[in-house]
Design a protein around this nucleic acid. Structure first.
Lengths: 193, 193
DNA sequence: TCTTAATGTTGATGGCGTAAACATAGCCAG
DNA sequence: CTGGCTATGTTTACGCCATCAACATTAAGA
């Protein structure tokens, strides 16, 4: 509901109008079923019903389209986390909920999640960005760790991201029990501070 | 020193003899400078001085060659961790050292690390394997967490893996200070147990 | 209305993974 | 030693891909 509307507006605009949006919509759709590497510009163009090279009127190259898709992925991830955080009512429970939401989003949309983070996919320089997800994480870290907020931020992100990746790559069982065992504030982060 | 000898044996065997080893050697070499996706079978064949399709006498397809390279990567990672662990003299310091070695290996060999873990690269089913790295991690977890060993194993792996990935993808600064801040047993894992 | 920029299309180029058919070399049975 | 089988390579070819160049069309503004 943020950027992509599957509804009328986009569909009406196919033949001449909003090819750019159509490509992103179709691309996001394709990412629900296939890995990013396996998606060709030509195939997306075919689906939209346009010639292969028309894509280049809206994106300089394939990577640019992927970056646009990555941006949409980050937005959706942030929204999923915000919803989870609110549902848990904030506080420590909310913090853990955002972590679990991060991992569950990755499992629900593997290709999109991978694309969003692969190779500087969405962020410019290092550090957290201005997306919803980053702001939410920072807020929680500051709330709980005060002076050690920086460290907590990094550790929390690393745990969630690592768990998500290991599950996506088939190295850890992708079930709720494992998620809950790892994303557990009772046994994580309870050091000094 | 484990599998790949850059020395005589392999070089002598180029023209007819050990194409398989030659391809793996050249492949590992290429991975030091380029991403796995950017390496083509044809290019490796060219470097070795053999026709493009000769590769298929030793690997059923591109993926198979990549898996072989991934295996070599895992072996090297395990060795790096073992060395770091021994240098730190085991104990809590050794545990942290293996984590740091994991991340440093990823930074030193980004393409190889990525390949090794991408998409079920080396492991069969989920869970830790029988490689050096997995055994070392399990041993430390058992030593320190007893009953909670399972959880500690997962958490430690997730933190190191997540940190490595975020750094490789340019989302976190890839410096020692950040590594030390995140891989810090003083503030991680010190919960109940 | 004429012009111009935005948007598409066709066609071509060079690269890729891979299949098929053919060639050769080394080993093993007689 | 010899004949043939197997392992290993080579050449050719196919279909797909990203991308470039040149041409066509549409829409908008002076």
């Amino acid at each position: 509901m943020v950027t992509v509307s599957t509804s009328k507006s986009a569909i009406r605009a196919y033949h001449h109008g909003d090819l750019r949006s159509a490509l992103i919509e179709v691309g996001l759709n394709a990412l629900e079923g296939t890995d990013a590497e396996a998606i060709s510009l030509r195939e997306l163009a075919r689906i939209v019903g346009v010639s292969a090279t028309a894509v280049y009127r809206h994106f300089p190259d394939k990577r640019a389209l992927q970056m646009a898709l990555a941006g949409a992925g980050i937005a959706r991830l942030g929204e999923a986390q915000r919803i989870a955080s609110e549902a848990a009512g904030g506080g420590p429970a909310g913090f853990a909920a955002t972590g679990r939401a991060y991992v569950r989003f990755a499992l629900a949309h593997p290709a999109l999640f991978r694309l969003a983070f692969s190779h500087g996919g969405f962020a410019g320089g290092p550090g957290l960005g201005n997306d919803d997800a980053s702001r939410l994480l920072r807020a929680y870290a500051t709330e709980f760790a005060g002076a050690e907020a920086e460290r907590l931020t990094l550790q929390a992100w690393a745990v969630a991201h690592g768990l998500a990746m290991l599950m996506l790559d088939g190295l850890l069982p992708a079930d709720d029990a494992t998620i809950d065992a790892v994303i557990d504030p009772k046994t994580l982060f309870t050091g000094s501070s």
